[in-house]
Amino acid sequence: MKPTTKQLTLCALLTAMALALSYLENLFPLSLAIPIPGVKLGLANIVTLFALYALGPGQALLILLARCFLGALFAGNMNALLFSLLGALSALGVMILLSRLRGLSLYGVSAGGAAAHNCGQIAAAMLTLGNSAPLYYLPVLLAVSLLTGGLTGLASACLFRGLRSTNLMKG
């Protein structure tokens, strides 16, 4: 299916916003409050969540890939690519599955995605280090992900509420 110009524009815009949000959350390093590696707000997840509902899984994946590659490129840190890719892909995968469950609201989907994001990052850390030591951080990261997931869920809910009157959600 060929994307419409509107969709393409929206994809580009969302990618830019996701990148901006990733940058923004570095200005508020949550890891200062919780000094373990990998702790962050995951604001870019708001974009993934929005794209998933507004544009569908395929384009959400495209935005996510563009965000990860460009983010690593801008940061000049290709090592971080594996981490962000594994984290973001796990998050998207889980959110696609959860969004099919009609009973769940944005909050549940977002929290599940945040938890999956952390699992993916820990997996990347274990791959890089070649041992299971990073697993030690996972319980704390999961607990934190419930909070950050709830927070991004809240932000997304506000977003959708605000956009309800526009035609963005109708494809």
Partner: peptide, 8 residues
């Protein structure tokens, strides 16, 4: 909450 609960 997250700050207090997870201090390592």
């Amino acid at each position: 909450l997250s700050g207090c609960g997870a201090q390592l």
